[in-house]
Design a protein around this nucleic acid. Sequence first.
DNA 1: AACAATCATCGATGCGCTTCGATGCAGCGG
DNA 2: CCGCTGCATCGAAGCGCATCGATGATTGTT
Lengths: 337, 337
Amino acid sequence: MGETVVSIGDVAKAAEVSTSTVSYVLSGKRPISKETADRVHRAIRELGYRPNAGARALAGGRTNVIGLVVPLRADLSLPVLMEFAAAVVTRGRQSEYDVLLLTHEEGVAGLRRVAASSLADAFIVMDVQADDPRVPILRALHVPAVLIGLPGRPVGLSCVDLDFAASAALLVDHLVDLGHRSLALIGSPAAVYDRHTGYAQRVLSGFGSAAQRAKVTTIWTPCEPSFDGLRRAVADVLSRQPDTTGWLLHNESVLPSMVAVLQEFGRSVPGDASVVTICPDDMADTHAVAFTNVGLPANDVGEIAVEMALRHLEGASAVETRLLAPVMTERDSTRRL
Amino acid sequence: MGETVVSIGDVAKAAEVSTSTVSYVLSGKRPISKETADRVHRAIRELGYRPNAGARALAGGRTNVIGLVVPLRADLSLPVLMEFAAAVVTRGRQSEYDVLLLTHEEGVAGLRRVAASSLADAFIVMDVQADDPRVPILRALHVPAVLIGLPGRPVGLSCVDLDFAASAALLVDHLVDLGHRSLALIGSPAAVYDRHTGYAQRVLSGFGSAAQRAKVTTIWTPCEPSFDGLRRAVADVLSRQPDTTGWLLHNESVLPSMVAVLQEFGRSVPGDASVVTICPDDMADTHAVAFTNVGLPANDVGEIAVEMALRHLEGASAVETRLLAPVMTERDSTRRL
DNA sequence: AACAATCATCGATGCGCTTCGATGCAGCGG
DNA sequence: CCGCTGCATCGAAGCGCATCGATGATTGTT
């Protein structure tokens, strides 16, 4: 069974029908009587037939493959990235799609290559920056594209992401509710801002405007992804705003070090300092002090991205932008002042 | 330029040759004079031609795609996984291969599906366990396969991995050299051992035999990937072997917590406790106390996996197993007793 | 100068599938 | 009982490419 490669012709022969009938049974694009359909299905099962992907793509004009473009040398948190990717693959498979893994590093050329050689029917692109050179290409290519994350301004492509501005605002409000009046934002590495990466900017502005509304004083600093980087960031904050008691940390990779570093500076959590963060829920949970956080719903975002892409593949031309509402979970890292 | 889809026929017309000539120029499988080759290349450039992947796969019998099977809900460290994947994609691209991302979860059926529909020419499979049901399938499928990690016993498939046994031994020797006589291994989550995952077992046996050779006392415990899990593991070790001074931690996800937890138990690092670990070098570096480690060369392993697969695709039938020699780097977490 | 041995190129075929137009057949109304 | 409609199915064409055998053009040989 299934030893040698079996083609649609073999199935047709076994079921005593023509190849087109087999094809129609499989695609359902024309009515086939129940009896013959059954015969065909039985033949398929007995022979272990699978349509050849290349032939199908050639004849049908679609590959059933989604190109997923991932920043591999990212400042993003790798675990988060993996969760996106996992969600995309899993959701894709549910709709008979496979996923081709592409890297940021191939850039515009990669997109061109994949599109021109019909390797994928759609793209999902992570970590798009303001004025990303790939955006115009994606628009020009006649291939649906969905962005995970928002570029600076709307660009005529569908996007999905956590609402980072609202998330930051929600966390600020929470700190304010707890009585904190002097807040600090410890952000992403400086390079992320230099590249005008959307989510970092949005956190910054959400933080700023919420704090302004609440009339509390704030300070902000980027933070390199190392223990020393965090130490410098905290030192910087405390030298410029010594009475800081509320900390919003938006930098997954130094999350594990935050409590220890504050300790070094004589601040215990949550006694002297309340810390909130934006990160996946499971990440917030696995530390000495569990962090009050807004969850980063990587799984949802990945699934939604696929669903948007599928909708485009089915002909929908309307561009959508979905910002997921933040969900905060109180844990052990925050306390009323 | 390149607006509408351009096929090999268009190139042929533009270069005033036959399609077969274009094909031969591209593949180099027959000699073509420099002049016509130049004409063809110019036409290709001017038209922006890219061979259609589906057609090429259909006619040529190879897809130029490698299937990469990744455990998405892994106990493995996600960052390490990403680094493997990145290396595979990058190295693959250097040889004109793309990468199809598949998940463990699809299991045997996924392999069957991809192979039978000719979606990939080869598989690279991560995190194979002893008696993994996919191994017999991989062997039966007429598709080259390379395993990242060693299954329990040799299985007639090419493998590549860090030599975990030697790594553990090297670290034990180092601790012993520093005068430690009472060692603990804090390992992976219990589930990993239950599944008989190769690398975990090999660390365990390398640890055990090196310690035995050195005649030092040892203790071992698994560890769940959370702060509390580590706390329990350390408590367990200290209750059963209170004089432990040398710690081998093989569990990336709790690495950031190790110093804090030992602190809780009144052990400072490296004053009262020396800690060594197996993890990527950059991970060892970004903590309060930089860890003495054996590097996990995910990048190398990924590249080698691709190269092995390529060799098989070129006809090499010899199965190889490559265990990469451990490289230790001393940092701040170890000290002479 | 005639012929064999390259060399460069062409045309035709087939890979496995989808899709379109065509065909046969049953059932229907008149 | 004839033509018509609608359903189930078939056959053929074509998707874009690789490859094989064949052909014409060169070169080398004696």
